[in-house]
């Protein structure tokens, strides 16, 4: 067992919490969409670490789904902001 995998996963979740600050403060909608994209990628990384730590590959499926939904949501919001939907 490598405990540092768990420690790094908690560190990534902590970074995602830090990004919430910018999400609350963000002056406009583009900042919020951008931060949501970054948070989703950080959570994907944390899920990868936790899957390897616990030895279950089910978490990797969840990570893939999170990445997929984040990508679709970001593109949708970007097209909405740009005025073509």
């Amino acid at each position: 067992m490598m405990t540092e995998l768990l420690i790094f996963a908690i560190f990534f979740v902590f970074l995602a919490l830090l990004l919430f600050m910018r999400m609350i403060k963000g002056p406009n909608a583009v900042d919020r969409a951008l931060t949501a994209d970054a948070i989703e990628i950080l959570l994907t990384t944390a899920l990868m670490l936790y899957a390897v730590y616990s030895g279950r590959s089910g978490y990797l499926d969840i990570a893939l789904v999170v990445a997929l939904l984040g990508f679709i949501g970001t593109v949708l919001i970007a097209r909405y902001i740009g005025g073509r939907l």
Partner: peptide
């Protein structure tokens, strides 16, 4: 998503 966000922000 980077291209889409950047262009959307500029067009906004």
């Amino acid at each position: 998503s980077g291209h889409a966000l950047c262009k959307g922000a500029y067009r906004r």
